[in-house]
Computed example of a mutant assay.
Amino acid sequence: MDWLLDPFQVSFVRQALWAGVLVSLLCALAGTWVVLRGMAFLGDAMSHGMLLGVALASLAGVNVLIGGLLSAGGMALGVSVLSRSPRLSQDTSIGLLFAGMLSLGVIVVSHSRSFAVDLTAFLFGDVLAVRRQDLAGLAIALAVTAATAALGHRAFVALAFDARKAHTLGLRPRLAHTLLLGLITLAIVASFHIVGTLLVFGLLIGPPAAAALWARRIPMIMLGAALLGIVSTVAGLVVSWHASTAAGATIAAVAVALFFLSALAGLLRRRLPTSAGKDAKP
């Protein structure tokens, strides 16, 4: 058991573990709705489209979190506006904004030779460099996300399964959609500077998708996603420590691998004489 516990004898690895746990909980809450509503492409676009805001904030000497928040918020707002056109699908709107904002971000980065290291951290993160104030920021983001998810649960459920019914029930689906975009934005922005966009997206999609293959109720999907995210964090840190691999990328790889293992197990289960599974229920 020493090989499992040895990495966590070091203080910065313990800090990374706490950061991974908080990010796992945060992404479980937001990522469940991303998976249920089929918003994975939007999450990917927002995480990478933030490069423009982060690059501009870094060059201007402003907190990169502010730049990332404005950039991700602009992406979400732009998608909402463009999607109202009857001739443009949401996927088309996301693709256009994704390519446009990412290309502008790369242009800004190319004019600053000193931004190369920051760009690497933006893409792949540095979970082993987490500070106490970073943990505090994640805890606050988690509290806000949990409160919003609890208060808006009924509207989110109706929106995820039947937006027209949500409107009939007076649940204001447009407001619910805006709040969901806010949850995704908060999860990505609060986590990217710690673990990078690679790990954020891996934990935002992988664990909820894996849990959704087995759980029947939305709260259970969130719980399963949180547990799988934590397992991914622990396993990723252990593997990274012994194999000398990038910690953030290893955690993300484990999260995605767990999804494929879950899918394989589900396929094997369906081949057995068991009753058919049911869709997720609120």
Rank of each mutant, 00 (worst) to 15 (best):
A147F: 11
G61T: 00
G67R: 03
G248S: 15
I205V: 15
P208V: 08
F192Q: 04
A215L: 02
P173N: 08
A30V: 06
A280Q: 11
L227K: 06
G224I: 04
P173F: 06
Q15V: 09
Q15A: 14
L25R: 02
A149V: 15
A149R: 02
A55H: 05
S114P: 03
A30G: 06
V62K: 05
V254I: 07
T185V: 09
R113V: 13
R132A: 14
G43K: 04
G78H: 01
W33P: 02
A243K: 00
G152S: 14
L264K: 07
L25M: 07
L17M: 08
L151W: 12
L180C: 04
L138K: 05
L142P: 06
Q133S: 09
S93D: 02
P273E: 11
R154V: 12
D118E: 14
L183D: 07
S11H: 14
C27G: 00
L223F: 15
L65I: 12
L213P: 01
F260D: 08
A155S: 09
A116Y: 12
A129F: 12
A253S: 07
G125F: 03
Q90C: 04
L52E: 10
F161Q: 05
D91H: 07
A57M: 01
V62Y: 09
L142Y: 02
S110G: 08
A150I: 09
D91I: 01
A40E: 15
S244T: 10
